[in-house]
Nucleic acid binder design. Structure first.
Length: 438
RNA sequence: GGAGAGGUGGCAGAGUGGUUGAAUGCGUUAGUCUCGAAAACUAAUUUAGCCGAAAGGCUAACGAGGGUUCGAAUCCCUCCCUCUCCGCCA
C-alpha cells in the first residue's frame, strides 16, 4: 500500500505508474479526495475534543451550580457532535483504505516497461538445454511409468489438479526441502515452518485480495465461517510473522527461510497446463523472506537472486533470469526477477520431428516489495539515537517450489531406458542415485 | 472445551471516576565530577495523527471493540490473548 500523502505529492508519477502496470482500476484521484476529506474531518473532530477537554476540567472547579449545569449541557452536546463525526471519519477511512488497496507499488526505474510476458527481459542464461538422442518423455509419462505420482487418486480424493506423490517423488520432495533449507541456514537464514493458514488482514497486507467477491478471480481458498485463508505462499505467513513490530535497525536485515504448503485456486488460468504437476492447487515450497532497510534492499534482492541461481546450478538445471516487465509485476513488487528452468517437454510438439520443442518454465521468483507490504502490516524499524520509526522493506524469493522442480528434474534427468538420474546434490537426502523400475 | 487468575511504558510494578501519558524502581542516553572508570548527582527517555519554516502546540492510545458519563487506565458489555488446573488429543 502506498501512503496517501505520497500519492498526493507524486500524483502524475503514480498515475503513469498505474498505466504501465495495467492497473486500470486504480482509484488514484479518489484516494486523494478521500484523504482530503479525512484530514478535514479529523481536524474538526480534534477541535471539538479540545473544547470538550477544557470543559471537563472546568466542571469540578466550578462552584456556581447554575454555571456548572451550563457547562455540563455544553459538554454533552459536544460529545454528541463528536460521536457523529467519528462515525464519518470511520466511513471515509474505510473508503480510503479500499481505494489505496487498488493502487500498485511504484516501479524500479530500470524495470522493463511492457504489457505482456513477451516484454520480460532476459538478463542472464546459465547452462545449455539438454539435447536428447532419444525421444524424451514429459514428466507425466515419466511419473506414470515409474509410479511416482497418482493424479487419479488426487482427483478422486480432493479434485482436479490435486495429486499424491509416491515412492521416489516423496524422497525427491524431502531431498529438495533438505537441500535448500540446509543451504539457506548456512547462509544465515533462520529456518521457520509456518502455519498453512493466515488471517484475511495478513493476506491483504502482503498484497493479496482474499475479499475479492468474485470467486472466478479470487486467487486463494477461504475457510468457511472464519476469517482464515489457506496461504498461497509462505511469503504471507513470513511477512505477517513480524506484523505490528518495531525492529531494531542493528538487527537488520532479518533473513528467514520458511517451509509451507501453498494453495492456489488458479482462478484466471482455466485450461492452462491442465496436465501434470506444473500448475496444481497444492504444493510444497521453501521460501526466503527478508526484512531490511531501504538502503539494504537492492543488495538483498540480488543476494536472494544469487541464492536461487546457486540452487538451480546445484541441481544442474539450465535456466534463464527474467527482469519482469511492469505489466507482469503484480501489486506489491517494485522489481521482480523470475528464474525459468529448461523443461524439455514443455510447449508444442515439433511437427517435423514429432518431438517436443521444450520451453523455459517459471521455477522461482524474487521480489523487492519496498515498504509496500510492511506499511499495511505495520512493521517498522528504529535506529539507535534517532527519534521516530521508519517502515521496513520486505523482499521474498522462492528457494524451491517442489512440484516445478520435480517437473524439471524428471524431464532433464531422464534416460533412454526410462530411468531418471537423481541430481548429485540430492543423493544424500534422497538416498538413491537413480530412479528406475525393473 | 470447562473452572479460576490476569493483560498498564524497553522491563518490573503502582494506580479503582476529575490536570495520571501515567508514581516508583531497573534499564538506556546525555551531562557534571574524574587522569580515566566506578559510584554519586542532574537531565532526558513511547507511538501515531494533525497544525507549524522551526521552536513547539493540539489530539489519540493503559489487550481490542462497543457502552455509561460533562469527564474512564479506573464502572458496564462483547471479543481476543496469556498463565494455572481439568478434559481431549498427535
Amino acid at each position: 500500500m502506498l501512503e496517501a500523502s505520497f500519492i498526493r505529492d507524486n500524483l502524475e508519477a503514480v498515475k503513469a505508474n498505474c498505466k504501465n502496470r495495467l492497473a486500470t482500476h486504480a482509484e488514484v484521484e479518489k484516494a486523494v479526495t478521500l484523504d482530503d476529506m479525512r484530514k478535514k474531518l479529523v481536524g474538526d473532530t480534534q477541535t471539538i475534543q479540545q473544547r470538550a477537554n477544557e470543559i471537563s476540567q472546568l466542571i469540578p472547579k466550578e462552584k456556581n451550580a447554575t454555571k456548572k449545569q451550563e457547562l455540563i449541557v455544553e459538554g454533552k452536546s459536544l460529545r454528541e457532535r463528536k460521536t457523529t463525526m467519528e462515525g464519518e471519519v470511520k466511513r471515509v477511512e474505510a473508503d480510503l483504505h479500499a481505494a489505496l488497496l487498488t493502487i500498485p507499488n511504484m516501479t524500479h526505474p530500470d524495470a522493463p516497461v511492457g504489457a505482456t510476458p513477451a516484454d520480460n527481459k532476459v538478463v542472464k542464461r546459465w547452462g545449455e538445454p539438454r539435447k536428447f538422442d532419444f525421444v524424451p518423455k514429459d514428466h507425466v509419462a515419466i511419473a506414470e511409468a515409474l509410479d511416482l505420482v497418482d493424479f487419479e487418486a488426487g482427483a478422486a480424493v480432493t479434485g482436479q489438479k490435486f495429486y499424491f506423490l509416491k515412492n521416489e517423488a516423496v524422497l525427491l520432495e524431502l531431498a529438495l526441502v533438505q537441500f535448500t533449507i540446509h543451504k539457506l541456514v548456512a547462509k544465515g537464514f533462520t529456518p521457520v515452518i509456518t502455519p498453512d493458514l493466515a488471517r484475511v488482514e495478513v493476506l491483504e497486507g502482503i498484497g493479496f485480495m482474499p475479499r475479492d467477491p468474485n470467486p472466478e478471480t479470487r486467487q486463494v481458498y477461504t475457510v468457511a465461517d472464519t476469517d482464515l485463508c489457506l496461504i498461497a505462499t509462505a511469503e504471507i505467513t513470513l511477512g505477517g510473522m513480524l506484523r505490528d513490530k518495531i525492529l531494531d535497525e542493528a538487527t537488520l536485515p532479518k533473513k528467514y527461510v520458511g517451509l509451507s504448503h501453498c494453495f492456489r485456486t488458479e482462478a484466471g488460468a482455466p485450461g492452462r497446463d491442465t496436465k501434470g504437476l506444473y500448475r496444481v492447487h497444492q504444493f510444497t515450497k521453501v521460501e526466503m523472506f527478508a526484512f531490511c532497510t531501504a538502503e539494504q534492499s537492492e543488495a538483498m534482492h540480488l543476494e536472494i537472486l544469487a541464492i536461487e541461481e546457486e540452487i538451480f546450478q546445484g541441481l544442474g538445471l539450465a535456466y534463464h533470469v527474467l527482469d519482469t516487465c511492469t505489466g507482469d509485476l503484480g501489486g506489491p513488487a517494485y522489481r521482480k526477477y523470475d528464474l525459468e528452468a529448461w523443461m524439455p517437454c514443455r510447449g508444442e510438439i515439433d511437427k517435423t520431428t514429432g518431438r517436443p520443442k521444450g520451453e523455459y518454465g517459471e521455477v522461482t521468483s524474487t521480489s523487492n516489495c519496498t515498504d509496500f507490504q510492511a506499511r499495511r502490516l505495520n512493521i517498522r524499524y528504529k535506529s539507535a539515537g534517532q527519534k521516530g520509526t521508519k517502515v521496513a522493506y520486505t523482499l521474498n524469493g522462492t528457494a524451491v517450489a517442489v512440484t516445478r522442480a520435480i517437473v524439471a528434474i524428471l524431464e532433464n534427468y531422464q534416460q533412454a531406458d526410462g530411468s531418471v538420474v537423481v541430481p548429485e546434490v540430492l543423493r544424500t537426502w534422497a538416498g538413491k542415485e537413480i530412479i528406475k523400475r525393473q
